[in-house]
Design a protein around this nucleic acid. Structure first.
Lengths: 138, 138
DNA sequence: ATACATGCAAACAATTTGCATATTA
DNA sequence: TAATATGCAAATTGTTTGCATGTAT
């Protein structure tokens, strides 16, 4: 997902492209990894005098609903990143900077065979650690 | 982990075995799956007039710290279950009842090969869906 | 012009803390 | 009895809502 596609999705669903919404997309486009509502709000505060947390939350929720962002829970906090929608995959996620690396492995084929009488609806596979950059920093 | 081992761990670390703590262990021993703080509190309220949420939270936190319980985020809420400590594995988790089925597959061997310059610290692999019982119920 | 978006304030929910009292070892 | 656990009330944090005003289409 990139900014242009996201704006198309917004308009298609009857939502307006405001300056704030575009800046939120810029933030995630540059982030290249998982970010919290707080981090986004800090960024937005640096651009707008008196922006409020509700705008941040409302738009995070909207973007998540529209499939522009995907969310996960890291270290007890909700994190979001731009959804990468090409094909199914999982991520390595850096504990320090939140950046991600795509993992082109999915264990579900093997697993489904073990779950004959169970209805599988979804799954989560995430690997955590330190990326090369953050290893050197610490 | 069973109740006896948990109490041993409590004492070993200088914590006392109160009636409430034993009941919390009973709750998780019978649950056989993931439960929320709210569900535990409801159970405790049925046994104690005027028990307070802080006792529940404090003990969940303590048990988690001691490795008696393990936690995960399901449907936006923190859930806990008795830790099963024999050998490394993952779980199928029923979206309805929270019960789990052990999955004796771990995809990490394959994955580590992809992460040569990354320091892997942990991982999460969970499968969600409906167990046979809950499929019939709905 | 109309409908949607935002800021503000307030509400709400989940979780944590300080302190006096009660309980365990 | 000495140290830990609990209940209560209040504080903290994260998130959501109603409403008047502002802005995009």
């Amino acid at each position: 997902m990139n900014k242009k596609e996201a704006i198309f999705l917004l308009n298609k669903n009857g939502y307006k492209t405001t300056k704030r919404r575009k800046d939120i997309l810029d933030f995630f486009a540059n982030a290249d990894g998982y970010r919290t509502a707080k981090e986004l709000n800090d960024f937005m505060e640096s651009r707008y005098e008196g922006i409020s947390f509700d705008t941040v939350y409302r738009n995070l929720h909207l973007y998540h609903e529209l499939g522009i962002l995907e969310g996960t829970e890291l270290k007890g906090e909700k994190h979001f990143r731009m959804k990468c929608g090409d094909h199914h995959h999982h991520h390595f996620i850096c504990n320090d900077c939140g950046k991600t690396k795509k993992l082109d492995i999915c264990p579900m084929d093997e697993v489904e065979a073990l779950l004959k009488n169970f209805q599988v609806i979804g799954h989560k596979f995430e690997v955590y650690g330190l990326c090369p950059v953050c290893q050197n920093a610490s």
